[in-house]
C-alpha cells in the first residue's frame, strides 16, 4: 500500500529517502549494463501486474507481487521499485514525491530479504520445495511490507498508531493471495523457463 503525501513526519521521510538512495545506488552498481533492458521490461511487467484487480469476497484488491520481484531481480529490486513507484506517481498520483523514498523502501526491503532467504528454496531441485519457497516469499514479503508501512506511519506520531494497526490487518488477506499466486508463478516459470530464475541467483550470489 502506498502511503500518501503529507502524513509522515520529516525524520521518517528523510530516513526513507536515505535508505532508498543507498539501496538504489548499490542495486545500480551491481546491475550489469546488459541487465538493464531486462530489468526495465520486468519493471514494466510488474507495473502492469499492479493494475490487475483480483476478487476477494465482495471486494477486490490489486496485486503487488513484492516477493516475486525480489526473487527475480535480487538487488535490482531497489531501482526497479523506485522507477515503478515514480511512474505510478507520475501517471496516477498514487504515492508521491516526498514519500517516494519511504514507499520504495517499504516494498524493496522485504523483497530483498525474501530474495536472500528463499532463493535457495527456489533453486532446489524438488518441485514441491520450489512451490513452498514461492509461497513463503510471496506471503512474507507482503507481511514485511505491511509491517514497514504501518511502522513508518506509527512512528510519525501517536495519533497514527490506530490507523497503522488497521493497515497491518488489511495486509493479512493479501498475504495469502500473494503467497498462493507467487507459488503458482514460480512453479510455472521453473517448468517453462528456469533460466529466468537462475539468472539472478547465479550472477548475484556469486554462485556457479
Amino acid at each position: 500500500m502506498h502511503i500518501s503525501e503529507g502524513l509522515l513526519s520529516p525524520p521518517i521521510l528523510v530516513t526513507g529517502a536515505v535508505l532508498c538512495l543507498c539501496g538504489t545506488a548499490y542495486g545500480l552498481k551491481k546491475m550489469d549494463a546488459a541487465e538493464v533492458p531486462t530489468t526495465g521490461i520486468l519493471t514494466a511487467a510488474f507495473f502492469v501486474a499492479s493494475l490487475i484487480h483480483v476478487p476477494i469476497g465482495p471486494a477486490s484488491i490489486h496485486l503487488l507481487l513484492i516477493g516475486l520481484i525480489g526473487l527475480l531481480l535480487g538487488w535490482s529490486c531497489f531501482p526497479a521499485m523506485l522507477v515503478a513507484l515514480f511512474l505510478q506517481a507520475l501517471f496516477f498520483q498514487y504515492g508521491g514525491l516526498t514519500v517516494l523514498g519511504v514507499n520504495t523502501v517499504n516494498m524493496a526491503l522485504p523483497a530483498l530479504l525474501v530474495y536472500f532467504l528463499f532463493s535457495p528454496l527456489i533453486r532446489h531441485k524438488h518441485y514441491r520445495v520450489n512451490t513452498l519457497g514461492g509461497f513463503l516469499a510471496g506471503s512474507l514479503a507482503i507481511l514485511g511490507s505491511g509491517v514497514l508501512t504501518s511502522l513508518s506511519l506509527a512512528l510519525s506520531g501517536e495519533p497514527f498508531v490506530r490507523a497503522a494497526q488497521f493497515i497491518l490487518l488489511a495486509h493479512l488477506p493479501l498475504m495469502f493471495i500473494e503467497g498462493f499466486i507467487t507459488a503458482v508463478v514460480i512453479s510455472f516459470i521453473k517448468k517453462v523457463r528456469p533460466e529466468i530464475l537462475h539468472r539472478s541467483s547465479a550472477t548475484e550470489l556469486g554462485l556457479e
Binding site: 531486462t38 476478487p55 507481487l65 507459488a183 503458482v184 508463478v185
Partner: peptide, 17 residues
C-alpha cells in the same frame, strides 16, 4: 481464480523476459 491469474502473470513474465 488465483491459479489462473498466476499462470496468466507467469506467461506475461516469460514473454516479457
Amino acid at each position: 481464480t488465483y491459479r489462473t491469474y498466476g499462470y496468466l502473470l507467469a506467461m506475461v513474465l516469460v514473454n516479457s523476459f
